[in-house]
Simulated assay, not measured.
Amino acid sequence: MQSPTADPLDLVREDLREFAGYRSARSERLDGGIWLNANESPWCNPSDPDARLRRYPDPQPEALRALLSDMYRCRPGELLAGRGSDEGIDLLVRALCRPGQDAVLVTSPTFGMYAISARLHGARVVDVPLHDTPQGFQCDFDAVADAAEANAVKLVFLCSPGNPSGTLLPIESIAALAQRLEGRAVVVVDEAYLDYAQAPSATSLLDMQRNIAVLRTLSKAHALAAARIGAVIADAGLIAVLQRCQAPYPLPGPCVELAVAALAQPVRAGSAAHIQTTLDERERLHAMLASSPLVRCAYPSRANFVLARLKEPQDAFDRLLAAGIVVRDLRSSERLGDALRISVGTPEQNRAVAAVLGSDGVSA
C-alpha cells in the first residue's frame, strides 16, 4: 500500500477550514499569580473548600491527552479528548458535512447516534445493511465503497466490534476501503468495544491512510461511563479542525481527575483482569443463550454483550424484567424485531439470566 497524498483537510467544509473557533480564557497559555481573565468568582463555593471547582478547566488537559495517546498508540497531536464517543461523532459530522448536500454512510444494524447526528446537522443518511449470516452480521465493503462514491458521502461510520451485532471487522478490509475512498470520504472506525476483542486497532493505519478516524471511549472496559471521557484519533490537521469546532470547556475537571487516576498502570492492570473475566463470561452467556429453548439464534460476539433473537421476545423480556433483570429491547429496530441485547454481567448476574431463560443446565 502506497503512502497517500490526499489531505483530509480537503474534505472539511470549505467555510470551516480556516475557522478560528472560540478562544476561551484557558486557551491562552499565560502565566500569572492573579487570574482575572475569565470572569470567574474570586471566592470558592462553600461546598468546595479545596477550590477544585472555581476555575474553568483546561480544554485539552496535557496529562490526560498524553495518557490516552500512549494507550491508543498515537501522537498527542492526533488525539482530541471529548465527552465520550458521542461528541466525536457530532464533531466529525459538523466539520465535514455541508447541510443539505453531503451524506454519511452507516451499516445497519448499528449505533443509532451516527444517523441522529447526521440528521441534526442536515446531512443525508445512506444505509448499506450488514448481511445476516449464520456466522454473524457481515459487512459488504465493496457495496459500502460503491454507495459512498455514488452518494456524495463524506463520512463512513463503521462500528468494530459492532453495536449491536458484536462483529469485529477485518482491519485489512478497513484499510482497503479507506484507500479506495481517499480524497472522497473519511472512514470512521468506532472502537468503543475493541478492548473486548483483543484485536489490532485501526489507529495502526493512520500513518498510511490519512482519511481514517478512530473513536475510543473510557465508558466500557475502563468502567467510567459517568465520567464521559472519549477520544477522536485522526490526522493532526483534522484534529485541529475538530478542536476549533468543539465547545470551549468540554471536559469537567473532576472527570479528568478520575480519568487520569484510572489510567495509572496499577488501575489499568485491574481493568485488564475485569476484561478477561468478561471474555470468559461472554462465552458462558453465549453458550447459555444458544442452548435455551426460548432463543432462536445467539450471535457470536467480540464485544461485552450478546445479541439474541427470541422465539417469543415479549415473553422473554417480561420474564427477565419480572426477575429484576433489565436488558436492551431492540424490537423497534429495523431487521431486529425479535431481538434482545444482553450485556455481559458478573458471573452471578449471568447465572440469573440463565435461570430465567432456561438454558438446559448450561448456566452452571
Rank of each mutant, 00 (worst) to 15 (best):
G337I: 12
L64V: 04
A95W: 06
P347N: 13
R94N: 12
A247I: 02
D338H: 10
A272M: 09
G237K: 05
N350H: 03
C74A: 15
D146N: 03
P170S: 02
V295S: 09
T278E: 05
I34L: 05
M1W: 05
G112F: 09
V232G: 00
H131T: 14
D58V: 11
R73A: 11
I171L: 15
W35T: 04
A185G: 06
A63V: 04
A273W: 06
P134V: 13
D15F: 12
L80N: 06
L336M: 08
L215I: 15
D90E: 14
V306I: 14
V188C: 11
N45D: 04
D86F: 10
V144K: 10
A290P: 07
S291R: 11
V232A: 01
K220E: 12
G112E: 10
F141C: 08
A364F: 06
Q349Y: 07
L224D: 13
R75F: 03
R26D: 12
A199D: 10
R73Y: 07
V327L: 08
C255S: 15
L205T: 00
V189S: 04
E312R: 12
L96C: 15
P164Q: 10
E87S: 03
A354M: 05
A352C: 02
D195E: 05
V126A: 03
S291D: 06
A148E: 06
L158E: 09
P109Q: 12
E334T: 14
G166E: 09
L218Q: 00
V153I: 08
